[in-house]
């Protein structure tokens, strides 16, 4: 599931990486940036928490010429005369202008590092609205945001994740360099897919999925148990050709010749016939009896 998401978030998608103090999601975020750069997409980073040097240092080896860093690290609140990007510029118009400044044919990926910073200075409904407008706006292909879940009230985290298409929650795993990712993905049809994976991020920022965690393992167990019920029977279920022939020879009671059947079915005048008119009070089962069959 994690590799699929790294392949590219759906158009108009919003991916939220939720982390906490016990495990930072920034490495995973960098993997996402790296994957997008390798696909030759333009990436715009709103950097509140990490400076440009630090980010590019982390992305060593990636083609960084398509990476556009909007510096909100040095002056996030606009206290000096020439702030590059402030938190108050987080609105549809400003962001569209920023993204459109650089000329690329393809719509870009917007990376927000981090949403927590914005949520501390802009009201949650406004943040949610801006994210929603960006998704529908068309200037940005997809949005990836980092959210420190333990910094906010539960409702705030819930509201942001409610409007996201995919949520990855990262937690530390048993072993030092590994982490657990709980992934929830909503497809456009409203279907929800959930998965839990243990992963490790290698030095070149590629993500290595070690194993599915216990939940996934349980599922495979139940699949194995589904064996053919007709395998070990004490009786014979199948007929050989000679047996079938013998069976068809047998004359069953109340099975008549064609002539007799016709006579019985089309009885002459004077016999009764059932006429039925449906009524609103009929107890008729609309349910398809074969609804649950795997056919």
């Amino acid at each position: 599931m994690l590799p699929e998401l790294l392949q590219g978030v759906d158009t108009g998608g919003l991916l939220v990486i939720q982390d906490s103090a016990s495990y930072s999601g920034r490495h995973l975020l960098q993997s996402f940036i790296n994957a997008a750069l390798n696909r030759e997409e333009a990436v715009h980073v709103l950097g509140f928490e990490v400076s440009e040097e630090e980010l590019k240092d982390g992305l060593r080896g990636s083609p960084v010429q398509r990476l556009h860093f909007h510096n909100a690290y040095t002056d996030p609140l606009g206290w000096t005369d020439h702030p590059a990007f402030t938190v108050h510029q987080f609105c549809l118009g400003e962001l569209t202008r920023l993204v459109k400044q650089t000329s690329h044919s393809k719509p870009a990926t917007l990376v927000i590092d981090s949403l927590s910073w914005i949520l501390r200075h802009v009201s949650t409904p406004d943040v949610c609205r801006t994210l929603q407008q960006l998704r529908k706006g068309g200037a940005v292909r997809s949005i990836i945001g980092l959210l420190h879940a333990d910094m906010h009230q539960r409702g705030t985290v819930g509201s942001v994740c409610h409007s996201a298409t995919s949520v990855i929650t990262v937690e530390p795993a048993m072993r030092g360099d590994e982490a657990v990712a709980k992934i929830t993905k909503r497809s456009k049809s409203g279907k929800v897919i959930q998965d839990e994976e243990i992963f490790r991020i290698k030095d070149d920022l590629t993500v290595l999925v070690q194993s599915k965690s216990s939940k996934g393992a349980k599922k495979t167990d139940s699949e194995e148990q589904e064996t053919d019920p007709t395998a070990n029977l004490t009786f014979n279920l199948r007929l050989s050709d000679t047996e079938r022939e013998a069976k068809q020879k047998l004359a069953l009671p109340f099975v008549f010749s064609k002539e007799k059947k016709t006579a019985l079915l089309h009885s002459g005048p004077g016999s009764g016939r059932i006429h039925y008119e449906p009524d609103a009070n009929d107890d008729y089962d609309q349910e398809d009896p074969d609804d649950d069959l795997d056919v």
Partner: peptide, 13 residues
């Protein structure tokens, strides 16, 4: 009542 209606009902305690 969701945040997109501009309501902070769901967002804060």
């Amino acid at each position: 009542g969701s945040a997109l209606w501009g309501d902070d009902l769901c967002c804060h305690d």
